[in-house]
């Protein structure tokens, strides 16, 4: 067995991090999205069916849920991870399309801007329930 890659060679390993982080974020999202869908759509289902609660999702219900620190953590990490995973996936698709691939650096920067902008907008929306 020869030696692992030298640090110089490691630098040239392009495309590793987007690939690797796509897998890490995807793995984490399975749990986060699972909890998210369960809490919003199914945990209150019985109450709605029995008429104890009018709807599954209303402002007050979300507000009560987001009063717990755990859900603040879950919702914000969900927002960040899902944006990364989704936009990184879009980048993957776009890179296989000539015109976008020729401007890969600009496209990647554009997607980062879109992602960060959307995160700020989404966080601002979420804070309506928290503050």
């Amino acid at each position: 067995m020869s030696a692992p890659l030298t640090s110089q060679q490691q630098k040239a390993v392009a495309g590793f991090w987007p690939w690797f982080l796509q897998r890490v974020s995807g793995f984490l999202l399975i749990f986060l999205v699972g909890v998210h869908i369960w809490m919003t759509h199914f945990s209150g289902l019985g109450d709605v069916v029995r008429g104890h609660q009018e709807e599954l999702v209303l402002f007050e219900i979300v507000k009560q849920r987001l009063a717990q620190g755990l859900f603040i953590f879950i919702d914000f990490s969900l927002l960040a991870l899902v944006l990364y995973h989704g936009l990184n996936g879009m980048r993957n698709i776009l890179l296989e399309w000539g015109p976008a691939a020729r401007h890969a650096a600009g496209m990647t920067a554009g997607l980062w801007l879109l992602g960060i902008g959307t995160f700020i907008y989404g966080a601002w929306a979420l804070l309506a329930f928290i503050l």
Partner: peptide, 22 residues
Amino acid sequence: DSRDVARNQRLQTVASEQGLWR
């Protein structure tokens, strides 16, 4: 192949955006 000594060179070539990760 243990007889080949260009392992790192080759891994570097294939571990590129238009290589393995595609």
